[in-house]
Amino acid sequence: MSETTSTAPQAIAPKRSFHYFANPARFVRVADAVYPWCFYAALICLGVGFYTALFVAPADYQQGETVRIMYVHVPAAWMAMFIYANMALASASLLIWRHPLAGAFAKAAAPIGAAFTFLALFTGAFWGKPMWGAWWVWDARLTSVLILFFIYLGHIALVDAFDNPDRGQKAAAVLCLVGAVNLPIIKFSVDWWNTLHQPASITKLGTPSIHSSMLWPLLIMAIGYMLFFACLAIIRTKSELLAAKQRSLSLRALHAGGGD
């Protein structure tokens, strides 16, 4: 059978030109080939990363052992932004070229992005408590990440809010792009607001001159997170494509059953 692509969007407009890798069937073939490599590389990087973060990396002379939180906090914050950028690119290609794969990918990636954003906030709070003496301070960076988290939640809610999943993906794509335009403004405004209201006593976290003995575990950890995201994105995108196929198959079964 040649109809291994997601059939739901095609039922609406049968003739659509696809970019090479945007063909869902081809994506599944490539992804299946790449997945094992991604998986084991992620496992190795995360294993080495966690080990060095917990046992090898030195304690900071100012922050003591709490600096180990950096190795899970900073990559999570990076991923929160990286995944949103990926979703924005996918959303643009869904709206411009109508790649069904791009819609499936954006839908699949959003919960992963939200999970990493949550982790960045959680670990940020647990790092802030010993450093700032409070679980939450309205620090510019934490606040921006919090708003990013809200935007992720809006995206997840919108994508699932329609009876027609195709419409949900497209609406969420518009939201994602509007968010992408707004995020730099939000970041700037929050920085601006923070400098106006910041009490002078707060000591800034992070961005000290990082010693190389701290940098390389951080980079390995970040690569591990990235590969982990790739694995999850492959699994979840495949699930979305299968879900679309399942819908059209069960519709067809219903149709055929009614016709008999």
């Binding site: 708003i147 809200f150 809006g154 939000i186």
Partner: peptide
């Protein structure tokens, strides 16, 4: 849920 986060800059300025 969709609109409030995007309105933060307006509120701040």
């Amino acid at each position: 849920l969709l609109v409030l986060p995007l309105n933060v800059p307006v509120l701040i300025f």
